[in-house]
Design a protein around this nucleic acid. Sequence first.
DNA 1: ACTTATAAGTCTTGATTGTGAACTAAAAGA
DNA 2: TCTTTTAGTTCACAATCAAGACTTATAAGT
Lengths: 155, 155
Amino acid sequence: MRWQTLSRENCSLARTLAVIGDRWTLLILRDAFLRVRRFEDFESSLKIARRVLAERLALLVAEGILKKVPYQERPLRYEYKLTEKGLDLYPAILSLVHWGDKHYSTKSGPPVLHRHLACGHDFRPVLTCSECCAAVTARDVEARAAKQRRRAPVP
Amino acid sequence: MRWQTLSRENCSLARTLAVIGDRWTLLILRDAFLRVRRFEDFESSLKIARRVLAERLALLVAEGILKKVPYQERPLRYEYKLTEKGLDLYPAILSLVHWGDKHYSTKSGPPVLHRHLACGHDFRPVLTCSECCAAVTARDVEARAAKQRRRAPVP
DNA sequence: ACTTATAAGTCTTGATTGTGAACTAAAAGA
DNA sequence: TCTTTTAGTTCACAATCAAGACTTATAAGT
């Protein structure tokens, strides 16, 4: 399977991975969440080849995950900021980070702590059910194919 | 940067991606969560090259994310099942699926629905704070480097 | 005994991608 | 004028990946 064809699969994970399921892309987004904004800053932070960085940034802009915002004129320069769609990736990225914290931390503990500004505490992310607010694990969930309708009552 | 060196970075996301940050690996895990267990079933479900499948399954077993369990003898055959460590990836994968549902659904809605067995409702995953149980978005969180300690009070 | 089927890989070969270094461009500063 | 800064682009080569044929081991059918 070519990666372009992945985006045409009828699976939300496949469509997601067609866009961000590449290691560099996720590391770029991690940096974006840590407020890295400029080409050179991404480059030196990630030690990524410039060609790959340019390509990935262009893709993320084309997908509406990052947007280019001018931060000076003469010469015109842009920085890359997360859009709302990009910010929506936060739960996924934080969950991946938490999994790494749990299973690959060295003896000195996780390298980054996250403080919830609303309550002031360092926290772990907990995935919960939108309907009953209880924590959800894999064993609590049953997946099934949606009925494919002609018309669209999408919320 | 070579991908092997990624696992040595002091970043939980980098270490996570060194293991599962490849598109096939995540699709294999999606299938595993949907109770696919056997080599041929993964192959026909994913249309993945057998060589790549064999390699990824071996890596996931080596990392303790899947385990080989015999399901028959003569000829001895194994199936691949998620370990606890593998099941821990569920929040990350469900978050990615949800992002795809939200941003790439066709007009007929998301292709798969998830029912929370405890409350019986179809649900969306919501990421919450372990300390105050409120929903968390990117804007609610401040990340900072942990103090690197000599000794290890890891929970 | 011989053929076919099943399951789980391995091998070969060609295509795709990533890499690091050098080059371009446009303006500012010495 | 010459150098620096920022954000790229281009190139030649290396590493990685993919498709499908081939292999191994066993059992069942004829």
